[in-house]
């Protein structure tokens, strides 16, 4: 059996498990970090009135949700209220405000609800942390569960040998499918 050394509890299995945890953690952190890093790095204090294009406005408006339009971002919403908000963004940009300053302006006035990304502080920090906690925690419980399932296997009935075409060359493939069909 090629996979004996991969049995639960074996050294290789342990190593695999640790690697998996690290990988999952890395992927999650990787997903979270770049977005943290880019916040607030947009400021440009030239002091002069800048030429602001519709694209600059849209870039910010995309991530603001005006309460007048349910679940429609500000860059799309067609109501007068949203047009006013876009004017404010343009005005603030002309005054040289940074992206973060504009987001702060809106969330102070109308609550965090208007931001596509809730701030990573206070209660809404929970929102950012929970997936990072729930999913890895779920993974731990899940692997425990799998190990338990596996542990009981040792005492239980052994596998029918016919079902383990281990050294399967491709010609056995059809046999395998037909076999499974029969079992159906």
């Amino acid at each position: 059996m090629g996979n004996r050394e991969w049995e639960v509890g074996s050294e290789k299995w342990q190593a695999l498990r640790v690697t998996l945890y690290v990988l999952v953690l890395a992927v999650f952190l990787g997903a979270a970090i770049p977005s943290v890093a880019q916040d607030g790095s947009e400021g440009d204090d030239s002091g002069l009135k800048k030429a602001v294009t519709a694209n600059d406005v849209n870039k910010i408006a995309k991530r603001v949700y005006c309460p007048v339009c349910e679940s429609t971002p500000l860059d799309v919403c067609q109501t007068q209220a949203c047009a006013d908000w876009r004017d404010i963004i343009r005005q603030k940009l002309e005054e040289g405000a940074s992206e973060q300053e504009i987001f702060d302006y809106f969330s102070n006035l109308y609550g965090d609800r208007v931001l596509a990304e809730p701030p990573r502080e206070g209660f809404s920090l929970l929102l950012w942390l929970l997936p990072l906690i729930i999913v890895p925690l779920g993974a731990v419980f899940f692997s425990r569960y799998m190990r338990n399932l596996k542990a009981t296997a040792v005492q239980s009935v052994s596998v029918p040998d016919t079902a383990v075409p281990d050294a399967a060359a491709s010609s056995d493939y059809l046999a395998r499918i037909e076999k499974e069909l029969e079992n159906n």
């Binding site: 991530r63 949700y65 609550g111 965090d112 609800r113 596509a116 990304e117 809730p118 809404s124 929102l127």
Partner: peptide
């Protein structure tokens, strides 16, 4: 006491 919102980027 405030209704939050989660946008697509999250």
């Amino acid at each position: 006491g405030e209704k939050g919102f989660v946008g697509p980027p999250v």
